[in-house]
Design a protein around this nucleic acid. Structure first.
Length: 353
DNA sequence: AACCCCTACAACCGCATCAAT
DNA sequence: TATTGATGCGGTTGTAGGGGT
């Protein structure tokens, strides 16, 4: 509905508040209480509209406002709550005494959002990033690292090349799978998702050997490493700190002994991914390519995947066939590392019966 | 010193919601 | 039930200050 500004509000002062104005507002509220915001400025002798006064009071002058930088605990809580509530800043703020919705919103947009993006996590969905730009950045990193392997060892005296290559491959694959399997992933309404996704992201166990991820498209499935809150007698979803949760649940997936050898490899890859995301936060890798618009290439990928989805064959084969089809149509030079990724997958992953 | 760029944060704006009439 | 006004909420913009060139 809303309301158009009345004529006497058209020439009210805007912009930053002066100390004098702050004093007038605080003085008035301390003596008379808030009353209605609309009439308050007139009574308080302020040439401001009620909305401006309310905002100034709620976000700055209120005596119970907590000053100073947000703590790590507060930051983690915001991330947790955001994954459940979305951009409901006022609701999030009710869980952080002394913090305002505006402050939390600003902090999210200026700090947390960037952190998550650098970690390869989509701040909107709290899932691994699947946007084309991010995939292209990773593939470019991979391409560069492959190039590095053919160079003289003098260009790579640190021995980090293999790690970088492996990490890039794994994250590309992870994101590809996430992209393709988007609808069957974990329920976003589950507060457990937050900690586990950030500190214990979806693993190769889940993707390659889990019985439910690719085959059974159950949107509520959390994967073996995500406990059922009721089954585990956990009443408060936030009773565990992220690190506690992560440590408790990391690599807890049901791994059969007969596949132990394969899984050890997967585990080490998974471990690398987990640490890589932390490392990325610390050693922020700059984008390696300019941003790519969503092009027909991307549409072609989607189209191929959709075609594959229509098939009644195993999701594993159709999924990878779709990608393979795309890769074959793509030029060979740029697609070589993509194929390598698929090779890696097909050799280490045996579709679950 | 001057300029530019980036970041953080305060404040504004438009719309939604709710309660009173 | 419809209308109106007050308030709340979330997206966006403006700006001050710091750092780099």
């Amino acid at each position: 509905m809303g309301r158009s500004p009345s004529s006497n509000e058209s020439n009210v002062k805007k912009g930053p508040w002066t100390p004098e104005e702050d004093e007038k507002l605080m003085d008035y509220i301390s003596k008379h209480g808030r009353g209605t915001w609309r009439t308050l400025p007139k009574h308080a002798g302020l040439n401001r509209n009620g909305k401006s006064c309310r905002l100034r009071w709620e976000n700055y002058l209120r005596p119970d406002i907590k000053r100073g930088k947000l703590t790590e605990e507060e930051e983690q809580l915001i991330i947790n709550l955001h994954s459940v509530l979305g951009n409901k800043w006022s609701k999030i703020a009710t869980s952080l005494p002394g913090r305002t919705d505006n402050e939390i919103k600003n902090y999210w947009n200026t700090t947390i959002r960037k952190k998550l993006l650098h970690m390869g996590i989509d701040p909107e969905t709290h899932r691994p990033r699947t946007d084309f730009d991010h995939l292209m950045n990773l593939s470019q990193l991979l391409g560069m690292s492959n190039l590095g392997t053919s160079m003289s060892p003098w260009t790579n005296p640190t021995g980090l090349q293999a790690d970088v290559t492996q990490l890039a491959k794994l994250q590309v694959l992870q994101n590809m799978l996430q992209l393709m399997n988007n609808s069957s992933f974990i329920s976003m309404t589950n507060p457990y998702l937050v900690d586990s996704q950030i500190l214990n992201p979806p693993t190769f166990d889940t993707f390659l050997h889990g019985t439910n991820t690719l085959q059974v498209r159950d949107p509520m499935f959390r994967g073996p490493e995500y406990p059922n809150p009721t089954a585990n007698n956990i009443s408060d979803p936030f009773s565990q700190t992220p690190s506690e949760y992560s440590q408790q649940n990391i690599f807890k997936s049901g791994i059969e002994k007969e596949n132990e050898t394969n899984h050890q490899e997967v585990r080490s890859y998974t471990k690398n991914i987990n640490t890589s995301q932390q490392n990325q936060a610390e050693n922020l890798l700059p984008p390696l390519v300019a941003s790519c618009p969503r092009t027909t290439t991307f549409n072609k990928m989607e189209s191929n995947y959709n075609e594959a989805q229509k098939s009644t064959e195993s999701p594993f084969s159709t999924t990878f066939e779709a990608w393979e089809k795309f890769l074959i149509e793509d030029d060979e030079a740029s697609g070589s590392y993509w194929k390598e990724i698929l090779d890696l997958t097909s050799t280490s992953a045996s579709p679950v019966s």
